[in-house]
Structure formats: structure tokens, C-alpha cells
């Protein structure tokens, strides 16, 4: 199962529609980095609206993706984290301190736009 990555102007859009298992997450990490390299995207939005469970491993992978993309010159914003997901993450002690977040896709794009100053 591969997660589709869409290109929109300078940005990459990813909507995760399935429950992430470890394999898919790793695959996604590789795909995204490759895609950033190919398209020279400056911003990435990962939408998690339909994700109902995030365990510590997935959270780590997502945090890593953000750092890695940053190194490659692409800002990442996570959007649409559900209340229940946020609560479990906090209870697990995963604060994802350095990950920018936004309420929905729209605000995520706005945030990227502001931060990149385009």
C-alpha cells in the first residue's frame, strides 16, 4: 500500500486515508523524500483527518519526516489531527515539539505560505 503524493504548484499534498502500519510509514518516508528531491517542492502538507490511531512509532516517523524534509529545504505542516489522536499522543508523552500543525488543509497551506514568505 503506497500513499499517493500530489503536487500542487510548489507544494506537495499528502492525504493519509488508511491506518498507517509500520511498513507503509517507512515506505511513505522514502517516497516523500524522493518526491521532494524530484519536484524541488518548498512546502509539504500532510493531512491526517482520516487517521484515527497514531502510535509512538508512527509519531516518530512523522517527526523524522518533518526534520528530513526540513534538511532538504521543504517545510512540512501536519493538518487535521483528530482530538482523540492528540489526546493519546499527549498521554504517551509524545509532544512533537518541533512539528508545525494546522487545523485543516486550508490553514495548513496558509501557514506554509506565511512561513515561506511567498
Amino acid at each position: 500500500m503506497r500513499i499517493p503524493i500530489l503536487k500542487l504548484h510548489n507544494y506537495l499534498l499528502i492525504s493519509i486515508q488508511t491506518e498507517l502500519d509500520d511498513q507503509t510509514a517507512i515506505q511513505f518516508q522514502e517516497d516523500l523524500l524522493k518526491e521532494i528531491h524530484q519536484t524541488e517542492a518548498t512546502g509539504v502538507v500532510i493531512d491526517l483527518t482520516s487517521v484515527e490511531v497514531i502510535d509512538s512509532f508512527i509519531a516518530k516517523v512523522l517527526g523524522d519526516v518533518v526534520l528530513m524534509s526540513d534538511l532538504m529545504g521543504a517545510k512540512v505542516v501536519l493538518t487535521g489531527i483528530q482530538p482523540a489522536v492528540a489526546m493519546t499522543l499527549i498521554e504517551l508523552g509524545i509532544h512533537m515539539q518541533n512539528v508545525p500543525t494546522a487545523l485543516d488543509l486550508e490553514q495548513g497551506l496558509l501557514k506554509l505560505h506565511q512561513e515561506l514568505g511567498e
Binding site: G80, I81, A86, M87, L89, I90, M96, T101, A102, L103
Partner: peptide
């Protein structure tokens, strides 16, 4: 703190 952190994860 926990509440505010969770709110931050949602993007607010």
C-alpha cells in the same frame, strides 16, 4: 500543559 500541547497538535 497537556491540554495546550494537545491543542497545538490540532493546529491551534
Amino acid at each position: 500543559f497537556q491540554a495546550t500541547e494537545a491543542v497545538r497538535l490540532l493546529g491551534a
